[in-house]
Every structure is written in C-alpha cells, then in structure tokens.
Amino acid sequence: MAQDHPLPSISPDVRRSWWTPARRDHFIGYLFILPQITGLVVFVLVPLALMAWYSLNEWNVLAGTFSFVGLGNYEKLATDPALPGVLWASACFSVGLVLFNLSLALLLAVLLNQKLAGTVVFRTIFFSPVVVSLVAWAIVWRFLLQQDGGINAVLRMLSIDGPNWLRGPNTAMVSVIVVQVVKNVGLNMVLFLAALQNVPQELYEAARVDGASRWTQFFRITVPLISPTVLLTSIITVAGSLQVFAQIAVLTEGGPGTSTTVLVYYLYQQAFQFHFFGYGASLAMLLLLIVGALTYLQWSLRKAWVYDND
C-alpha cells in the first residue's frame, strides 16, 4: 500500500504522528461501509425515529388531526385486552414456522444430497414456489384448503373426514404456517445443501470405520459442521416469521376469531384500517423491541452452539 501511494513529503513527522497506518486503515474501513451505513441511516434510522415520534402522538390520518399525547399510546398498549392474544398468536406462528421450516429444509437438503440420479429435477421442484407470485400462491392454497377443496378430497379417498382447515382456530394456524413454509423453504434448503456438500467426506469414512451409525454420524458430524448455516438461516427465518403479513391477509384475514392475528397484521389493522396511526406506531416500537431482543439473543448465544474452527 505504501509503495503505491507514498505519503506526501511535507512535514512527514507531523503526518506520521497522527496519520498512522492504523488510522488510515480505519478511514478505509469507514469508506467501505459508507454507502451501506448512509442508506441504513436514511432509510431505516430516520423513519424509525419518525415512527417513535408518531407513537407519542395521536394521529388520525383522515381527519388530519395530530396531537401530542405523551405515553398515552403506550398506556393503551399495556391495557389493550386484545394484545396478549395477538402476542400468543405471533409466538405460536413464529415457533411453528421456524421449527417446521428449518427441519423441512434440512430434510430436503439431506435427501437431495444423496447420490441419486435425477435430484436436479427434485431440487428445481422444491425451489420453484420461491419464484411464484405470492398472491397466486395464496389463492391456490385457499382453494385447496376449503372444506370441499383438494386436500379434503384426497383425505376422503383415504376415508378420513378432513376438517375445515381455514375455519378452525388451530387448523388455520397450522395451515398458514405450512403454506408459508412450502413457499419459502427452498431458500433455506439451498443454503443447507451447499453446507452439506462442504462437509469433508473423510470425516464420514473415519466415523464408519469407528462403527458409528448413520444417526450418530448425522448428529455428531453433520449437525456441528453445518451449525454456522443453521445460525444464519434461523436468524433470517425468525426475523422473517415476525414480518409475515400478506399470506395471513389472503388466507384468513387474521381469523377465525383473532386466532391468526399476528403482531404485524394487528399493527396493519390499527394503523391503516382503523386509522389509529399513533397506536400503530407504538405497536411498531413493540415489534422492533421483540425482534431486536430475539436476534440479540441468537447472536450472543452463537458461541455456545455454533461449531467454529477459527
């Protein structure tokens, strides 16, 4: 570096004392992150600050009234009788989605990683929903999940009387999770598949020599070695699960009752449908707090469960 661009010769002593190579490296570091950080400040921090300000006001968009209410919206939040149910639905949805998504992604990746002919075809099929329009996807599934829809028709052939999937509180939740997982599991599957292909074969051979069973190999070799990918996908999936909105809007509209009204959907209802924009903003702050805490937890626990050979 110094060879390419010799430092200016004027007062070299002064320069050296302040403009040290370390300082220069810091400067380069800042330059590298400048575009991204500028973007995050302008498009994330500033809007969030505005939302925080809105949460201290009562803003009726239609009437054009905007008045400072201090912590009024947060008091409302603390006493909102609907909120515990909403948080419970969010928790059920997120836990169910993350567990099902990650385990299905791993199962598919392991299946595709067997040396079988024709896995390219299956790989394409499992990935294909990712590129299908969300709206078309949700509409087809709504059709399939009806009382007399495709899924119950198949069950009837097996002499099972299928439930009315989208109308029962528990089955509606399960349906929304499954539809969402099938749509997006291809992304995590691809990441897992790449990680699996990266596990050195010698390790398995050594384990076989030692007489380890397939299960032992899987849990002692595969899982630790792909754990960095598990962390990455779980962070993405947890954050994504708390943002899911369109499928719920199309499939259940938060029902039956309020059983599938998750936090983002509730926020949307309050702010955009009921016109309580200030209250919606305080819910946004709550959502931010929850997602932030979860991600911080995952990130700080990573040392405990992610295998890292560095």
Partner: peptide, 19 residues
Amino acid sequence: TNNAQIAQQIRASLDAAWT
C-alpha cells in the same frame, strides 16, 4: 364511524357462530 374496527370485531365474534 370507526367502521373498520367495529366491523372487524363483529367478524371475529361471528366466526364462532359458523359451526
């Protein structure tokens, strides 16, 4: 007035009637 919120509450309540 405040129709969306009221309509939503009624929809959620009536869901229990449709069994």
